[in-house]
């Protein structure tokens, strides 16, 4: 149901009944290694190209999700997924393997929440019973396309971010009352915001206004106060972007607590890992949200959270032509299913 200007309320409370998360070697050394279902020792994942490796990540995440849900892929109606590579081939090729009817999404690093919002919407209105949604990125494949070759010895500034190698997939199903699983309750779709920043090594700074815009729109549309949520989680703003977003929100008069405001890109890695300002990439919010955060929700650490995934909608061509970086953010509110009385 549309509420306000750009938000949906999911009255039937679609349920995230199973998730699957896979990651690479760098994530295995990170903070949240225990929340990954599959971790690879090798960036190649036994394939002969990084693009194929990225496909493997998504396939494995999907397979894990299905195994956990004890379902066959024939029972899945739709797949909503995407990634960062040209024409989202890794995801489409993975969809070819899985033979599930497929919507390819591109929202850069916001794909995870774009997918979750759409999947929830479809399930909420009985458009499907079981829908898979997810996002994936691969460090080497993404760096290759957007920046320099992996082995190139260029110095990255401290504002740069590290693309996550990983895939996170969630299975969205009709609500089963009483089952202790997270459910999606509302979503806010963001506008594309461009504040004229054009440094691809400072994505956090470029994405911050988009995140702030979507968060404010969510609270305005839903007529809620930030204290409604235990946690407001941003996707991959990194250190700079998170500080900037926080300041923007405070300045606009939102009563938000610094402690309830966290970022996936900062949670994922240890301080001594050379990730500069934090993690990024489509897989960043997907792996942290479907892995770590949902596990914590199930443990009862959080009751209600708002996840805001941000994406920088640039291409290697656009920044070489000195275009600024337009950014977007999508928010999905997730809470634990009510216990049966």
């Amino acid at each position: 149901m549309l509420k306000g200007h750009q938000s949906w309320v999911f009255n039937n409370r679609p349920m995230i009944s199973a998730t699957g998360v896979s990651g690479g070697p760098f994530e295995a050394n990170g903070n949240l290694a225990n929340d990954f279902d599959i971790l690879h020792e090798d960036l190649w994942m036994g394939m002969d190209s990084y693009e194929k490796a990225q496909r493997v990540l998504l396939e494995e995440a999907v397979r894990t999700t299905l195994a956990k849900a004890k379902m066959e892929k024939e029972q899945i109606e739709f797949l909503f997924a995407g990634d960062l590579i040209n024409q989202i081939t890794p995801t489409s090729f993975a969809a070819r393997t899985m033979q599930i009817p497929y919507f390819g999404l591109f929202g850069a690093c916001s794909t995870s929440m774009e997918g979750l919002a759409l999947a929830s919407f479809v399930v909420n209105y009985q458009g499907a019973r079981n829908v898979l949604t997810g996002a994936t990125s691969h460090n080497a494949a993404t760096e290759k396309q957007f920046r320099y070759p992996t082995e190139y010895g260029g110095q990255k500034p401290p504002t740069a971010q590290w693309t996550v190698t990983g895939a996170g997939v969630g299975l969205i199903t009709q609500n089963v009352p009483g089952e202790q699983q997270p459910v999606t309750t509302s979503a806010t779709i963001g506008r594309v915001i461009d504040m004229g920043l054009s440094d691809p090594f400072n994505m956090g700074g470029a994405m911050a206004p988009a995140a702030a815009d979507t968060i404010m729109a969510h609270f305005r549309d839903m007529e809620l106060d930030p204290s409604h949520y235990d946690l407001i989680l941003t996707g991959d703003l990194g250190r700079i972007g998170q500080d900037t977003t926080f300041e923007l929100l405070i300045k606009s008069g939102l009563k938000i607590d610094r402690k309830q405001f966290q970022d996936c890109g900062l949670l994922l890695y240890k301080d001594d890992q050379p990730v500069q300002a934090g993690g990024s990439g489509a897989g960043c919010s997907a792996t942290v949200f479907y892995g770590h955060i949902l596990n914590q929700m199930k443990k009862g650490m959080y009751k209600r959270i708002l996840v805001v995934a941000t994406g920088a909608l640039l291409s290697p061509l656009s920044f070489q032509q000195k275009e600024s970086i337009p950014c977007i953010a999508h928010a999905v509110a997730v809470e634990m299913n009510e216990e049966r009385r």
Binding site: M195, G196, N202, G205, A208, I240
Partner: peptide
């Protein structure tokens, strides 16, 4: 945009 960039500059980590 200019106002935002000034704000952003403050948080940007310098080389």
């Amino acid at each position: 945009q200019q106002k935002y960039q000034q704000l952003q500059q403050k948080h940007e980590l310098k080389r």
